[in-house]
Amino acid sequence: MGVTDADEPVERVFQALCEGRLARDELTARKIAAFLGQTTMVLYHHFGSLDGFLIRVDGAGWRRLAGLLEARARAGGDARSLAVAYVEFALRHPDLYWLMAERRFDRARLREEGRLRLARPLWGGFVELLRRYGSARPSEDTHVLFAGLHGIAMLALSGRANLGEAPAPDEEVAFAAARRLADLVLPARPPEPPLPPAIGDRDPRRSA
C-alpha cells in the first residue's frame, strides 16, 4: 500500500523519533508543523487534533515493536529473548517509547472519533503471541508482561535499574530482570507456529 498525503507526515515524524532527530519536548503542534515545514493546519485538517496525529505515530511505534517480536518468534527465539527485545526497543528509542507508553491521550475522545480502530486488533496480536508461547491465560499475562517490562524499561531509562551493590550496568540488570519476568510468566518452550496474519504485517502508518 502506498504512502498517502496523510500518511507522509506520520511516517516522517515516526522515523525522526526512531532516529533521535525529534525529542518528546518537540511533540507540540507548533514544533511538529515546523519540522514538517508546514502550518499546524496539516495536523488538524487530516487528523482532527494533535492527539489524532500523535496516536497515529504511537500506533506505528507499537506495530514496529510487534513486528520485531514476531520476527524473533519466527526465528525460534524463546520468551526470554522477546522480553529482552521489548526492553531493548525502549532503550534504543526513548522518545518514541515515551510517546507509546507514557504520554497521556484523550482515548475516550479518540475512540468516539473512530481513531482507535486498530488498537484492539493490535492488542489481540500480542495476546495471540503469548498464547503461542504457552500461556494458559494469555490476555492476563499480556497485561502482566507489559506492566513488568515497562517498569523495567523505565527504571533503566532513569538510571535506576541497578539499585543494588553489584557493579553492573543498568542495561545489563534490566535485561536480566526481563529474562526473569519471562521465566515467571511463560513456560520455557518454543512458540507454536504463527497464525496468519502476523501481528507486524499491517502497514505501520495506519491509525492505532
Rank of each mutant, 00 (worst) to 15 (best):
E192T: 12
G164N: 07
R74K: 06
R206K: 14
D106K: 06
D183P: 04
R92N: 05
G164R: 07
L96N: 03
E171L: 08
P169E: 02
I55M: 03
A75H: 12
R92T: 15
R80K: 11
R132E: 02
D7R: 10
L96W: 05
R92A: 09
L186H: 05
A188M: 11
V10T: 09
R63W: 01
F53S: 00
E128A: 11
P9S: 09
S135Y: 04
D7K: 07
R72V: 09
E171V: 10
V3I: 15
F105Q: 03
A29S: 14
D141A: 10
A168K: 14
L110C: 02
T39D: 01
E192V: 10
R180H: 13
A153P: 05
A136G: 13
A34T: 10
R24A: 13
A29W: 13
Y44I: 01
L129Q: 03
Y97F: 15
G148C: 07
S139F: 07
A161H: 10
R131T: 08
A90N: 03
P167H: 12
L145R: 02
I152N: 00
H93T: 14
L155Y: 08
T40D: 00
F47K: 00
A83G: 04
F175C: 02
R180V: 04
T40E: 00
G37K: 12
G59E: 01
F175K: 08
M154I: 14
E70D: 05
R131K: 15
L186A: 06
L163I: 14
L195C: 04
K31A: 10
L181A: 01
G124E: 13
S49C: 02
I152T: 01
M154W: 14
S207H: 10
E19D: 15
L36P: 03
F35M: 09
R132K: 13
A119E: 13
F126E: 08
G151A: 09
R115I: 03
D25I: 04
A119M: 11
P121W: 02
E88A: 04
L122A: 07
R132G: 04
P167V: 01
G164T: 15
E140V: 15
F146G: 05
E8N: 12
R63Q: 15
L110M: 06
L184S: 08
G200H: 06
R80G: 15
D7S: 13
T28F: 00
L149F: 07
A73D: 02
R180I: 06
A16H: 07
G164A: 06
P138D: 06
Y97R: 02
P121S: 07
L17D: 01
G2Q: 15
F14M: 09
V127M: 07
R21Y: 13
E112Q: 15
L43K: 00
A85F: 12
A168F: 14
R189G: 10
